[in-house]
Design a protein around this nucleic acid. Structure first.
Lengths: 208, 208
DNA sequence: CTAAAAGATCTAGCAATGCTACATCTGATG
DNA sequence: CATCAGATGTAGCATTGCTAGATCTTTTAG
């Protein structure tokens, strides 16, 4: 009886180790994809190149992901997770100053420092409305960080969506070089001004 | 002498006709690409499919465009032209009401009614800063339409870029289904409110 | 009017890609 | 130790963008 128990445990250990190995390899694939994309663009992220990079044959990749697009989707989700964490960090840490400004800067910094990552996050159609329960939690997490900024406003969802859209537009048009980087600071300043609501709207008028 | 003259003219005629034919075929290619993209997505716009569609062999396409991407770029430029015209039309026609609102609605209507066209306009990197003289005039035209909306503001370029970024963000996040369509009207209303500047800022406060 | 030259168009094929059926090899099991 | 299951590799298919060379058509020149 004991022997069978021990065997069971041994089998479990083996299963665990195999799972760890598998997850490690999965992380290796995702990491390679990110690295190549960031240095040489997504068109150079081919299945053959990835299999080379991790020193396995191509079919191994298909044991981890359904398709090439599945790999990109995994990278994108990782990106959303990191973006959410970055925003949360800034929002929680900065007590002084305008939180809207801090979060906006953090968002744009994220997009600018990992352009390929940001690109894949939005070029894919793993897109489901945020309300939908099928939406991966990583996606909702980032949104919720923005939401907290405006929860005191009259229509938080609408304002949050608008704020996100503006940030995304700036990030995207900057990434594709349609906006000159030279005016970026002014753009952010103007954005923050638009989305900073005084408790008393009249205060602004009086001040001016 | 006269005979040689006549020959010259005949040769010109032929050259003209050939040019017309070539342009017509070019338009045919672009049209087919747009149609297929809008119905079946850009991944179905293959060189073979296009050559089928216009009843020519594939190499003919390369007499018109350097590459497949060149075809997409041509479609994108056509798109920018049409967007610019649509905005101009609305801006000039609507005298009553808020021009910012009309233009915003027209922009989003354009993006929503031709999602594939809008997609290719911004997914390609035919992207050069607007200041750059190498930028196709079609691209600058659309921007100039938005610019006129805010030319009385203190920093028209910055406000215009911000407005454009917001519109683009809304369009893109709606197209990829990250925003529920149900709140679209409210989003536009909030956007318009943010970008409508009273001559006297106090008026708003007083009114409230 | 006819032959040569120029130009337009097609056929056929290359290299690269995503993906997969099948063979092989390794390691766990009794 | 033999067997069997699962992991991994080999080899190949269909599709893609693109192009060299052959073929056919039109223009030019004698």
């Amino acid at each position: 009886m004991i022997s069978s128990m021990e065997q069971k445990q041994a089998a479990d250990r083996i299963a665990e180790r195999k799972l760890r190995d598998k997850q490690a390899r999965r992380a290796l694939i995702i990491g390679a994809a990110r690295r190549i994309a960031e240095h040489e663009g997504w068109s150079n992220v081919t299945v053959r190149r990835l299999s080379d990079e991790i020193s396995y044959s191509q079919p191994v990749l298909y044991a981890h992901f359904r398709s090439r697009e599945g790999i990109l989707a995994a990278v994108a989700i990782e990106g959303f997770q990191e973006l959410g964490l970055a925003l949360e960090k800034v929002r929680k840490r900065v007590r002084s100053g305008n939180p809207v400004e801090s979060v906006a800067a953090a968002y744009l910094e994220f997009a600018a420092s990992s352009p390929a990552l940001y690109e894949v996050m939005f070029s894919l159609s793993l897109s489901v409305p945020f309300g939908d329960p099928a939406t991966p939690p990583e996606l909702r997490f980032g949104f919720s960080q923005l939401l907290e900024l405006f929860e005191r406003q009259s229509k938080p969802e609408v304002i949050t969506e608008l704020f996100w859209a503006s940030l995304h537009g700036i990030a995207e048009l900057t990434r594709t070089r349609r906006f000159p980087r030279s005016r970026q600071k002014e753009r952010v300043r103007a954005l923050v001004e638009l989305f900073t609501f005084q408790k008393d709207e009249a205060a602004k008028a009086v001040k001016a």
